[in-house]
Design a protein around this nucleic acid. Sequence first.
DNA 1: GATAATTTCAAACATTTGTTTAATTTTGTG
DNA 2: CACAAAATTAAACAAATGTTTGAAATTATC
Lengths: 208, 208
Amino acid sequence: MVITEKHRQILQKAEELFASRGFDGATVRDIAEAAGVNLAMISYYFGSKEKMMEALFSERMSAMKIRVETLIKNEALAPFQKVEILIDEYVNKVMEKQSFYKIMLCEQVINKNSVVLKALSELKLSYANLIQELIKEGQAKKVFKKNIDVMLMLNTMTGTTTQAILNKDYYKAFNNLKMKTPEFEVLLVDKLRIHLKVVFKAILGYEG
Amino acid sequence: MVITEKHRQILQKAEELFASRGFDGATVRDIAEAAGVNLAMISYYFGSKEKMMEALFSERMSAMKIRVETLIKNEALAPFQKVEILIDEYVNKVMEKQSFYKIMLCEQVINKNSVVLKALSELKLSYANLIQELIKEGQAKKVFKKNIDVMLMLNTMTGTTTQAILNKDYYKAFNNLKMKTPEFEVLLVDKLRIHLKVVFKAILGYEG
DNA sequence: GATAATTTCAAACATTTGTTTAATTTTGTG
DNA sequence: CACAAAATTAAACAAATGTTTGAAATTATC
């Protein structure tokens, strides 16, 4: 499927509305209005609402895959340096693309669209396999401990970050922070990265 | 509102369907059929679909509040013992009530039902305040380090557990586990608890 | 600039949705 | 048993939904 600028313009608004109302809660009329196009354009461009969601996934996920592989293979970096970069990049990306990560989260709960589920499943397993390699490298170099549960470790990274996004406002209130949204998000990302690095050191048995 | 056995029977099926299809994806007809009651019974018993969701929340959340407070106040336990019990109970409960935790997760993403959002918000802040107390107790007794980010710590507990539930099947596949669901879930809960305790030791600076 | 292809649009379409109705059955009460 | 209250039902209702249609407007091609 060829994605034009018009596609992107619609997908952008669809993403926002799917994230704030869910797939079933966001109507094609809402999306069309938000994107400033006629209702019929959504079927015209994507075929259906469901296929629009699939297009959104293929569009967003294609932009996610590349970096991890090249990071893992990079021989100039020590294993824990790679872990640190991984955390930094992951936290940044989730904060930057909050809407899409919210959609991904809901889609994991609601097992309906098989195309989306398959994309998610492939992403997850390939991700886990790459990190597995990284762990093994660290173990071979005697800087990580034995018996590391890769999946649980990843659950901690993705889960902590996801919760941090969902609880943003509570975090601000609970810690009495008075700053405005953009600088608050910078602060939260910073705290999150430091937090996750402490946690990962413990999980990996790394003594930096 | 008086909740009878009939209410509970309907809420039980509503919970399952909300968890697997989302609030908007699960129709009142689906729910009525699954519960073996007439379509009109849902309005008759709850007033509306939305109020049924609110009834589900008040029903399930009332069963969650009690234990944490008594745990924190218990003077016979050391701070980190309390943390361990907290982790154990939380992980158990999420695994036991998977459907409801999935619904809670989606409701946090989709900000629609204000009654539900308010209940979630109150739960979260009261929870954070109780844990805050526990942290302070540990710091006063010099067994926890200074400058602990309570909210991020809780995000790690809830987020890791949530992700573990959502990724159950991938965990099984990735680790080549051949056992059946019930015993697999026992194993997963075990792994999760151990994992979280390692993580919390690092976060709290506890040297057990 | 004429013709063809593409894009846009308002309107209509068929379903599905949550909810209500009004009649019927069941249950409780004296 | 008789009567009232509560529970259950099938049918109907209005609104909302995703999708299609066929005409009009715009753009591209020669």
